[in-house]
Amino acid sequence: MEPINIMIVGVGGQGTLLASRVIGAAAVSSKLDCKVSEVHGMSQRGGSVVTYCRVGGRIFSPLVEKGHADVLLCFERLEALRWSGFLRRGGLLILNDERIDPMPVIAGAQSYPGGIIEALQAGGAQVTAIDAAAIADECGDRRAANTVLLGVLASKGIAGIARETWEEAVCGIVPAKALEINKKAFQKGYERGSGQ
């Protein structure tokens, strides 16, 4: 099986690492080879962060190359724009439609670009944009936005991983006290993603 390349991009502190761990766990239970490359340290302090997940028959490099990503799971709009060149034309871009201003915008040196979603669509991305934080809020905690996005990802039938496998992976990774909220968040995301 050709590797499926997923990139998770966002802002340090948004819970991207947890999402990548769920993808990894789902892949391993599906008996697929998997590599997940994380970013730790300096880059986490509110900076732009990227996690590469590769799932398939046999994986060599833990990184995804430009133009090779099948899915871009984006936790923030500007980060979706920044990393969009990694997505192959026609690839899936799942977007949490949230805006977090970076320091140059806060400092007034640069402005936050407008029309990002339109530009992504015009540029050849298949965009599914949702307000994951609001959906997570409905489920009981905004911080479960990452699980909502995972629900959307799961609904797209990525790497042939079954819904139950995704759910088990979420249960295995999310801390017990937040489990109920995250289960709901996953379900809502799945429903949104499959257009239910």
Binding site: S84, F86, S111, G115
Partner: peptide
Amino acid sequence: AVSAVTAEPAP
């Protein structure tokens, strides 16, 4: 690859 261009560059 996807090539998305906005009026302002990504800060």
